[in-house]
Amino acid sequence: MNELYSLGISEETIKCMLEVNPKINDLSVQEIVFKENMLKELDCTDNQVRNIISSNPMFLSNTTEEIVDVVMTLTNYGFTTLNILFDANPYIFNLDSDEIKEYIESRKNNGESLDDIVDDLDSNPYLFNEI
């Protein structure tokens, strides 16, 4: 829990995080730091790391494979500033990579170009909530 405080997350927010994801209590400092470092590998600033973790507490319980899967899927489709994307919509991490693929492929099948779809999602990250 101290690790979350050191990120600049308030006690009130931590209480809410525990309500959403009680398993946070069982995580070790190393596990939390590992997840922070994964975000930093995506060029997330400390601020963005704080935002992502505090707004989407489930992220801390996602497995490494699940996180890498989502990141690789988005990267392969051409998303570049993932730090900005996840900072805008941290809940993207809760999606299945297959769901993201299905959504994008469905729009492609409707005639949209991949470039336009990526730009649309990048500029309107709330669209991921509709997947």
């Binding site: 600049g8 927010t13 707004s55 809940y91």
Partner: peptide, 15 residues
């Protein structure tokens, strides 16, 4: 219109 707002942390909302 944007239910996700309610899920931002307090710090994120304020910032």
């Amino acid at each position: 219109s944007m239910p996700s707002i309610i899920e931002f942390s307090f710090e994120t909302m304020k910032e």
